[in-house]
Write a protein that binds this DNA or RNA. Sequence first.
DNA 1: CGCTGAACTTGACAGTGTAAAGATCAGATC
DNA 2: GATCTGATCTTTACACTGTCAAGTTCAGCG
Lengths: 204, 204
Amino acid sequence: MTDNPNQKPHHHGDLRSALIQAGIALLSEGGKDALTLRKCAARAGVSHAAPAHHFDGLDGLRGAIAQEGFRLFRLSMLAACDDSNPSDLDRLKGICSGYLNFAIKNPALFELIFSSAPMAGLNRDLKQGTAFAYEVLRDACAPFAAPGQDPQVVETQVWSLIHGYTHLYMASRFGPVDPLQQARGPFDAVMALLDKLVAPPPKA
Amino acid sequence: MTDNPNQKPHHHGDLRSALIQAGIALLSEGGKDALTLRKCAARAGVSHAAPAHHFDGLDGLRGAIAQEGFRLFRLSMLAACDDSNPSDLDRLKGICSGYLNFAIKNPALFELIFSSAPMAGLNRDLKQGTAFAYEVLRDACAPFAAPGQDPQVVETQVWSLIHGYTHLYMASRFGPVDPLQQARGPFDAVMALLDKLVAPPPKA
DNA sequence: CGCTGAACTTGACAGTGTAAAGATCAGATC
DNA sequence: GATCTGATCTTTACACTGTCAAGTTCAGCG
């Protein structure tokens, strides 16, 4: 009866995750505006109103996609510095490199997860996903906190620097974007600012 | 005949600029998604298809609004550091302060002007508007370029830092946004990284 | 067997961008 | 002055979107 895989059942089985994957694919293929409830539904083989039973409207789907996006984002940062044990500075720059690489490989997804939706409106699972990714950055920044200084300061400095560079690079502010990640603009020159974290100014 | 000001003429007179102003107002009131060709037209008192004669679709209107946005953005940066002659560092931090202030006062407009529309697709006037605003940042960075170093390096470092901070702050990544610009998050702590531009590390 | 509730479909509606075709009018030309 | 011309704006229409309301299907259970 239902053994025939060609015969789609009334219940999809795992529609929620199928819609999220469809959404990521649409973002990847057509950019931010290509993410549509109806197109996601069509790609998952269900009717246009089916997603409403799994997400709270389009924003709900965006949130679920963002959660998955943060998971991939974290993996990209970790993958860029899993060498043997390099110096603390190399490790931090590796994290930043993974930060940028994720945006280059997933422009629309990167834009989505850092879109201006106020954090207050995020559900708990998504908040946890962002915190989990932030942990990677925090760990890499830990060795650079001056004694007696709030470690958040260095974290915020590094985060601002790499995030700003990535966002401006993706907006073609440093020249055309290279999807092959060969030319990443003045990435190394900008990241050289991090060198000054380890060599504090002389007390004079 | 046509002396009666209550009697609206067939020709608007300055519809193009009226639509841009209407668009900025809509962005300010309702955020990024509130910018709509039809709503702009209605606010300007014309039919919904009238904007098509002045802009190349919604993206064309966005570009025109961005051009005006860059003009205001530049003024905001200049306004934040027009004191008497402070130090180079104070002046640079003032520019950064104006950068952030503009985003706080015009969240949707800030998002629009730095949206990921590739620079390649921008028209010449808009490109010139962005270059004009960038000039302010470049001038403020000039005193910090190490001798023999490409001044673009410092410019890109500073730009990345302030842009990343602003973008993350506006996404409520450093806590809730204060529209009154009283609490700007760890702004001063992050900008302290710029101190290291003037005090290079010792040579060993 | 029949019930119940979740999963999904169908149909409808308002709002959107955009294109085509017509109406209006200021200004130049004759 | 009369007429032509082209820019400006309106009207109409269409496809697509998110969202709601109501109906349909079906697995699991008493």
